[in-house]
Amino acid sequence: MYEEFLLQLMLSKGIGDIAIKRIIRHVSNSAYDTFESLCQNPEKLLPIIKCKDSMFENIMENKERAKILCAELKRQKIAILLETDPLYPFQLKTVLGEYCPPVLFLKGNINLLSTLSVGFCGSRKASEKGIVITTQCAEQLAEKGVTVVSGYAAGTDLAAHSAAMAHNGNTVFVLAEGILKCTEKKAIRDLLTPQNHVFVSQFLPQALWNVGNAMKRNSLIIGLSEAMILVESGKTGGTFAAGEETLKRAQPLFVIDYAKPEVSAEANPYFIGQGGQPIRGRNGVPNLDGVFAAINTDNKEANHYEQLTINWN
């Protein structure tokens, strides 16, 4: 069971994402080294990553902790997906390149990672109008078989997740914390089915929410989506950063174009000016023709995917 030994390395001080990425790639290309052999003989890490004697000791000390954590992940049916795994989302690698997370922790229908998807970003304190528009957008996507991706925060995120599932659609919850810290929020609890959702985290399973993780989480939302819809953004904060990163990565960015933006949407005109494509209303409903054209739904089967399975060794 490689997962236990991978966790043993991930739990060790001084081994961050860059080091884990190098270790994973080394193991995948080595005829001799495995995660287990590296844990049993930590000095083998010297040619792969920068190491100190204290790191070797810490790796050995984390053996029992990793074993317990691995058992808990298995009990809760949480899967681990490595960057080198053929099941790792191709879209994520394409968008984020070298910056894609080396490890993903998944709970739910992992098939959804390979479906046609659109991401949402917006204020936690979205206006009433913003929540209505988010709901209408997510409903249209669900009806077309497009998976909704968002960050499981209050406001815009929960409105997008809820509307997708309420209209027989699917959604991806991208977490800013460890997957073992995630709970089913009341707003979505009754909408969940075994097939219509998946929770995804790039962080250690017991990691707590923090601002830095929330920013990294935004990158994962962008990377899993073929286009992003920005509902409301202030001039600073996480949504503003997500909008800027979407443009920087040359991903299609669609921005709700309010006639009179609320304070929570005061940066929306800025993003339209920077190249974001405006979403305007048609008969009182957001017109998503541009979104569907950008993600090419006419030439793709939105619900088609290869059956993904991850088994514990």
Rank of each mutant, 00 (worst) to 15 (best):
L9A: 10
I20M: 15
I24F: 08
V27N: 05
E36H: 12
L38K: 06
C39H: 09
L46D: 15
K52V: 03
D53Q: 14
S54L: 14
S54M: 13
M60E: 14
E61F: 03
I68T: 15
R75D: 15
Q76M: 14
L81E: 08
D85Y: 14
L87T: 11
Y88C: 08
P89W: 03
L104A: 08
L106A: 08
G108P: 02
L113W: 05
L116F: 01
S117D: 01
F120D: 07
K125G: 05
S127K: 01
E128M: 09
E128H: 10
A142N: 07
K144P: 01
T147Y: 00
T156G: 02
A160C: 08
H161Q: 15
A163V: 04
H167G: 12
F173S: 13
G178K: 08
G178D: 06
L180M: 13
L180V: 11
E184G: 00
K185I: 09
I188E: 06
T193W: 10
N196A: 10
H197W: 04
V198C: 15
F203W: 09
L204F: 10
L204S: 12
A207D: 14
R217L: 08
R217K: 12
S219R: 13
L220T: 13
G223S: 06
L224M: 06
A227F: 02
I229T: 04
V231D: 02
G234A: 04
K235S: 09
A241Y: 01
E244D: 11
E244Y: 05
T246W: 01
L247P: 04
K248H: 11
D257L: 02
S264F: 01
S264H: 00
E266L: 00
I272K: 04
Q274G: 00
G281W: 01
D289V: 09
A293V: 12
I295Y: 04
T297H: 05
D298E: 14
D298N: 10
D298P: 00
K300V: 06
A302P: 09
N303T: 15
W312R: 12
